[in-house]
Nucleic acid binder design. Structure first.
Lengths: 126, 126
DNA sequence: ACAATAACCGAAAAAAGATTCGGTATGTCC
DNA sequence: GGACATACCGAATCTTTTTTCGGTTATTGT
């Protein structure tokens, strides 16, 4: 197993939430499952920027924390395999995920403007 | 400047939000400032687990994205120096930060239980 | 002048996280 | 059987983030 070298404060709610939701694609994966992409291959197609491996790993973590569960598939189509579904814990994360998405979209203008500054101007310490 | 090697989807709200809020201590820093810890040294004392350097760097990033601003200090006490304050953009993040904290605290039991499993049992791939 | 505190910054190193690649196993369709 | 899709996993490698450490500059109290 992999044990962290640096200890964290497990009494801080933010640290705990990030244990479950932290990771490059976890929000997107939860969003994908919520939108009906229940199988790993479907999720991978839905998020093509993410490597397949990281999707597998983050699914495993979400499963581990109980945000999703593995189900015998309901739609027995070709090639029938794994299906993931949100648990109640996972569903309780949806408003948070939605909020994170909304905030980003609402403020996309400002954020992108700043990011563009980084692109064209001289080296800045950031 | 540091330029990312791996490109990201800047049309995804979650990616954008995480540009501003991503980072080990950004939520805590916003929370600290909101609670009245306006100066770097005060924030550092408030979050002793974080290294001073990372607080400086993440303050610089929050400043860069316009979530906080540097102000001439209002309370001219010893040793008078920098003061940070939330901008309206920063304040608009507070509900999100609060929600992240709340979710973690509400589900602390389950999350910690899972984390403990990792501690005492045999190697698990996570 | 001197010790102490504050605010920063650069750079190396460590740690954490993600990607790439190659592999196994299973099942379906032709 | 052969081609193809799915679901995984291990390990090396690479990227990104954080830590550590050693500095600079400035201000205050003694």
């Amino acid at each position: 197993m992999y044990t962290k070298k640096i200890q964290e404060d497990l009494d801080c709610g933010m640290v705990l939430t990030m244990k479950v939701l932290g990771g490059k694609w976890k929000c997107c994966i939860l969003d994908a499952i919520h939108k009906g992409m229940n199988r790993p291959s479907a999720i991978a197609r839905y998020i093509p920027e993410a490597s397949q491996r990281v999707i597998e790993m983050q699914l495993a973590e979400l499963l581990f924390f109980g945000a999703i569960e593995k189900c015998p598939e309901t739609t027995p189509v070709y090639p029938k395999r794994t299906e993931y579904r949100l648990t109640s814990l996972g569903e309780s994360l949806l408003p948070l995920v939605a909020y994170i998405d909304e905030w980003g979209l609402k403020n996309a203008g400002v954020i992108k403007a700043r990011l563009n500054e980084l692109e064209d101007c001289a080296p800045v310490s950031l």
